[in-house]
Design a protein around this nucleic acid. Structure first.
Ligand SMILES: [Mn+2]
Ligand SMILES: [Mn+2]
Ligand SMILES: [Mn+2]
Ligand SMILES: [Mn+2]
Lengths: 222, 222
DNA sequence: AATATATTTTAGTCAAGACTAAATATTTTG
DNA sequence: CAAAATATTTAGTCTTGACTAAAATATATT
């Protein structure tokens, strides 16, 4: 019997994907805090996902979880929905990039595959969402990401912003006001080694950004 | 404490509204069959809705339920969502009138009030959905319905179809093929008193329709 | 290596919303 | 109008996905 992917399961898988994108495993606590749920609840759900047939996660006590191939497909399906929806809310209903996330978070679980196809086609099969994040393809492959966090650049390096990995509206509005949006060209002017602040120049403006911002802005070095 | 309107509660309220539009009360069995749920489950939910604060339904054992003013507002909110969504799926994504219902059924519960306003504005505040059904206004009033069921017309009477109260895809395609869609002008040519069949003429075509169809087509006599 | 701290798991509860089976009420009919 | 048929309610159960409190394990610090 095929496991039903409830909203809750979809959210777990999506968040496990996002935590493990770079190889590490997702810890109980990290998942709990992203999902706004207690760690004990995560353990329960993770055990269930691990013993589902087919299994959706790989799990060993105290070692965190990683997605199985089935789990990854399911996660990418949700992420594709989310990012297509965000793009489409912006393009057709005039939402701004700081407004789309909450709406997409709810819609992602309920749209049909037909709806997914229709909005993708209507937009000409976009590659990125309004934050610049890559949209998984229709056959559920995540395109290759050739960017690095801005926090890894040093004075003298130049880059173009590819995406901003953030959903909090205030941060997004702050960045937009500064012109720190996908496509923007920036130059790193200064680095303070102890607090990890970077001084960034875009056009004629400069701004000092802390690590909690620079680690969320992904750039392509140029 | 304000009652949370779960998806399930929203569906109960919507269906109670539709069953009681014409004054009667909604029976346990009728609700159960619309909601694809057992009668015992309906009794349980209805008792809960009746003792919610504020109460959403009026309930007396074995007498069925009616909506309170609060329940009615909540029902109209869901119906407004549903019908706006149907209109919008047709207008912007090329859905046909037989495809929209299932999608709207899921989306109706998750869109925000902001989304509702945006699609209403984008369509110029439409009055009717793709089936011709009236859309409750933004302040949750149901506009006056000046139509009657086609089944109440008799030979010699003329009418224009205002709406079709149906969601089954096959029936809708059948009617569309016959040209029996909102706006169509029809004439009743014959009535067979025992089986309630009506012979309907539209343009140069004629068709005999049974009561289970003519009771779902609402017309304005002309 | 021993202890303190942080993380994770277990065990037991709860609420929502369905279900079945049995009891009761209402309606229809001979 | 009483029996039969139909409709509704009650009582008890189940699943999902949370929660708290307590126990177990892992990691960090001395
Ligand atoms: Mn988002
Ligand atoms: Mn979600
Ligand atoms: Mn509909
Ligand atoms: Mn619904």
């Amino acid at each position: 019997m095929e496991q039903t992917l409830t909203n809750s399961i979809q959210d777990y898988l999506k968040n496990i994907y996002e935590l493990t994108e770079n190889g590490e495993s997702a810890s109980t606590n990290a998942l709990a805090s992203r999902l706004n749920v207690k760690p004990a609840s995560v353990t329960g759900m993770v055990q269930k996902l691990a013993s589902a047939k087919p299994a959706l996660v790989e799990y060993q006590k105290h070692q965190g979880v990683t997605l199985t191939d089935d789990g990854k497909k399911a996660a990418l399906e949700v992420i594709r929905h989310h990012r297509l929806l965000e793009a489409w809310l912006v393009q057709t209903l005039g939402y701004t990039w700081d407004e789309v996330h909450a709406e997409a978070e709810k819609l992602e679980h309920v749209i049909s595959e037909d709806f997914e196809r229709r909005i993708a086609a209507a937009m000409g099969h976009p590659l990125r969402d309004p934050h610049g994040e890559l949209i998984p393809t229709a056959d559920l492959q995540m395109p290759l990401d050739d960017s690095t966090p801005l926090s890894s650049l040093r004075p003298g390096q130049f880059g173009k912003i590819e995406y901003v990995k953030a959903s909090e509206a205030e941060l997004l509005r702050y960045l937009e006001n500064l012109g720190l949006i996908p496509g923007a060209d920036i130059e790193v002017k200064d680095h303070s080694p102890f607090d990890h602040n970077l001084t960034i120049k875009m056009g004629r403006k400069s701004v000092v950004l802390g690590l909690n911002i620079t680690s969320k802005i992904y750039v392509k070095e140029s």
